[in-house]
Structure formats: structure tokens, C-alpha cells
Simulated scan of single mutants.
Amino acid sequence: MRIAVIGAGALGSTFACLLAEQGHDLIVTARGAALPVVQADGIRLSGGYGDRLARPLVVERLVAPCDLALVCTKAQDAAAAIAENAAVLDGTPVIVVQNGLDGVTTARRLLPQSACFGLITIIAAHYEGPGRVRVTTAAPSYLGRGDGPADAATLHWQAVLDAAVPTLAVDNFVGAQWTKLVVNMLNALPAITGLSVQEVIGQAGLRRLMTRSMRETVRVGLATQVRFGSLQGLSHRRLHMFALAPLWADQLLPLSMRSRMGTVPNQGSTLQSLGRGQRTEIDFLNGAVAKAAAGIGVAAPVNALLTELVHEVERSGEFLRPGDVLARFT
């Protein structure tokens, strides 16, 4: 099968390498200085899925039709990347591999002739340079679309992906996106402090703040009538209870997430973006919670301020000390 991967970052490179190993004909788009490097050296994957090397066709933009496309850019770059390749992509099944809530909607708007799906992935992958990725946590991915049960087309593409990397078809994909948004609350504080996710959770004050951002996310979702999807042991019932429980008890959630990460430092995708001098997708993570809250006339002060602090670090290039961060929330 001829498969295009839009974006040669951590996840795009991971999926391209694993799909190529299954015998698929891979085409990967890359930009800037990364383009000639990946063209010359291919993609090297290490860590959770073992050591792999793939040599896909690497181009700046697609020029020939394909059977399937995966959009693996950061959320803020998705619209431009899809639009740039729309002449080739429109009519091709497209899977958007992205954080946030808007990826599938954006793809449907720009590719009206395409069947569009979303893929939620829990894989933690560290981008070490063009064509070099280390998987720090191997984990399942979840494919779906809409808020109903997984349909036949979803099951078909799930089987294609699952042969390369563990993938499940999920009902109520929109609800699952909200559940992943709760998980993505792991990202902001590492980006603000420069600490790994494990280190942030290990500090009591930062852990409480992370927990508050998660609780606020769940409460905003419930207020917008979202039914959270089942993902990684989380469910609507469990998250509803989480929203009502005392803060000390809710801290068990980030602690359990840390235990699944192992000992390899997990920077989180937002901190990795800062390390590469790139814009972060914080507006599509904590910022998405603040936006959803504003849409129904309620406040999300914790997530709004976390978003502001990540932008502050983007502008200054300087991380904040944990004590200074906590003082901003008192």
C-alpha cells in the first residue's frame, strides 16, 4: 500500500518507520534543514520498538496520489500542511495523528472529498534530530471518528495500522479526544520549568497544580455535555468521580501516569518543541480548555494561566523556577 506521512517529527517518523517495515511504500514530507538529512540517511528508530531503519521516499510536498495519508504535524501546523498537499490528498483517506480537539474537523474542512479519521496515540517519542527518534514509552493508539460507534471504515484502517503498531478502534472518538486532553495536561509544567514529566509529578506543589489543571479540564468537558471516551483505563464514570473527589485523592491520577512511564525521562511534546526553538501547541492543549470554557461562559483560570506561562517561556527562552510558578497561582 502506498502511504503518505505528512510531517517527519517524532510521531511521523515513528509511524513511517514501523509502517515501512510492514512492506508499505512510504512517502514522508519534511521541511527545511531536515529534508536533505532524512533523504540521505533515512529514519532511525530506537527505544520502545527496538532499533529500526527505514528509507522512505522523502519529499517537501506530495506530488502523486496515495492510498492513505497520516497527518503527523503539530496541531498549529496542520491546516497549512493539509492545504499545501490538498491537491493530492483530497479524496484520499486521511488519518490525523494529533493532540487537541480540532484536527479531524480541520481535515474535513480542507479535504471535503476525503474520509477523515483521528488517531489518538499514547506513544512517547523523543525527537533527537532529523530522522532520529527514540521511543521512550511504547503504548497503544486509538482510531476513530465522530461520537458514535466505530464504523466499518474505521475497523479497516485500524487493521492496517495495527499490523505495524498496536492500534485499537474506539467508539465515541470525540469523547476520547477529551480524555486524551486530560492526559495532555502532563505537558505544560515541564515546558514551563524545564523538568521532565516524572520530575514535575515528583514535586508535591507542581503535582497538585497539574492535578488542578486536569480537574478543571474534566469539569469544563462535563459542562459542555461531553461524554468522555474510554482510554488508558480512564472512562466517563472514573473522570466524573475525579471531578468530584478531593484534590489529595485526585493526585493518584498523575502518580499512576508517572508509574507507567518508567525511568527514562519524558520531556513531553511541548518541552521538546521549545528545545527545538519551535512554537508549541499549547493553545490546542491547555488553551483548548480555556477556549471551550469561554464558549459556555465559564472560567478555566488554571489552564488559562498555564497557557500564558508557556507563551512567556516561548518569548523569553528562560524556564521558571517551580517556586515562582506556584506563586503565580496563589
Results as ranks from 00 to 15, higher is better:
72 C>R: 05
109 R>K: 14
99 N>Y: 14
109 R>M: 03
175 G>N: 05
25 D>W: 04
138 A>T: 09
34 A>K: 00
6 I>D: 01
36 P>F: 03
322 P>H: 06
32 G>K: 02
172 N>L: 04
8 A>V: 01
110 L>A: 11
91 G>Y: 13
240 H>Y: 12
251 Q>I: 07
208 R>T: 14
274 L>E: 13
19 L>H: 04
306 L>W: 09
80 A>E: 13
284 F>K: 04
167 T>Y: 02
268 G>V: 09
179 T>N: 03
298 V>I: 15
320 L>Y: 01
146 G>N: 10
303 N>T: 10
171 D>T: 04
292 A>D: 03
274 L>M: 07
18 L>S: 12
107 A>C: 11
76 Q>F: 15
173 F>Q: 08
180 K>D: 08
316 S>V: 07
27 I>V: 15
316 S>R: 12
101 L>K: 07
91 G>Q: 11
134 R>L: 06
68 L>S: 10
299 A>T: 15
300 A>P: 12
302 V>M: 03
7 G>N: 11
214 M>L: 01
196 S>K: 09
38 V>M: 14
262 G>P: 05
188 A>D: 05
318 E>H: 14
124 A>W: 03
85 N>S: 02
161 L>E: 03
118 G>F: 06
161 L>C: 08
272 Q>M: 13
51 D>W: 04
318 E>Y: 02
95 I>T: 00
260 R>P: 00
77 D>Y: 10
181 L>G: 07
110 L>W: 08
196 S>A: 14
17 C>D: 02
230 S>V: 12
322 P>G: 09
125 A>M: 03
209 L>C: 11
108 R>G: 01
173 F>E: 05
210 M>A: 10
137 T>V: 15
92 T>K: 01
300 A>F: 05
86 A>D: 00
159 A>E: 11
104 V>P: 03
244 L>F: 01
118 G>L: 05
194 G>T: 07
251 Q>S: 03
59 V>Q: 13
88 V>Y: 00
